[in-house]
Write a protein that binds this DNA or RNA. Structure first.
Lengths: 134, 134
DNA sequence: TTTCCTGCAAAAGCTTTGCACGCAG
DNA sequence: CTGCGTGCAAAGCTTTTGCAGGAAA
């Protein structure tokens, strides 16, 4: 929210609702899911606003677009460090941060090899969580 | 092609054309691009057939659906491991497959630790390519 | 007040389905 | 022959755009 204001955008209720809808569960959601969750706080929230807010948040780097096979492909998640490495359940779609797996050595090797100046990465692992295996 | 027949599907001209359209350039293409390329061999090829053939090839594991930000998100590439790992330039947005970096050990460790039944992964590395560093 | 934001409605894109014809086996 | 596969057309979704009213600063 603060970041929005600092970037010169208004602090509006619909925007807060969209952010809350994404942030409150730590998962990744499609625009439509965000609409549904958001409507529990703001019944008149519109899909258009969800799309526009997601674009805005993405352009500010506050949210990441995440590829998600099962939900029409576009889902969004908060862009904090934890979300650079995540594991996603293919059944319940819950996403959990993967911590403690350091890819630094691998990334450095890749930088050496390709000549790229590495800035960041994203690792997504897909699978079925213990709960959904039952 | 052989794999199609072995799985009990017919060897038809449109299917061969779709396969050739993907295989002949080694890149990844959207369904519409595949249609256009395919029409250079088979002018009456239909988009429906492209979609159905891609679904079929995907279900047989011959082709992978690839997330591709610039082209409406759904692109397809021959199913080699390379396309699960990519490096993307933040300036020119060109994406290059990262080959030869095996994450298998890491994925197994993650599976052990989290109890997930791992199905797949995607590693995206962001940086600035040698050309854009100039 | 003035500008930016919102929500509705409509348009534009992409993907899937229904169906009759035609080719593969 | 017999059924699977194809292409057209239409339906279904998702995403974007245009606008007039409303809220933020």
């Amino acid at each position: 929210m603060r970041a929005l204001i600092e970037a010169g955008y208004s602090n509006t209720y619909p925007r807060r609702v969209v952010i809350q809808a994404i942030a409150s569960a730590g998962g990744c959601f499609s625009p439509f899911e965000i609409l549904e969750r958001g409507r529990s706080w703001h019944a008149r929230l519109g899909l258009t606003t969800v799309y526009r807010t997601l674009d805005l948040l993405t352009s500010l780097g506050l949210v990441h677009k995440v590829h998600h096979e099962e939900e029409g492909c576009h889902s969004y998640a908060l862009a904090d460090k934890a979300h650079e490495q995540r594991i996603v359940c293919e059944r319940c779609h819950r996403a959990v941060a993967l911590e403690g797996h350091d890819l630094q050595a691998l990334l450095e090797a890749i930088g050496q090899e390709t000549g790229y100046h590495i800035k960041g990465h994203r690792l997504e692992v897909f699978g079925v969580c213990p709960n959904c295996q039952k």
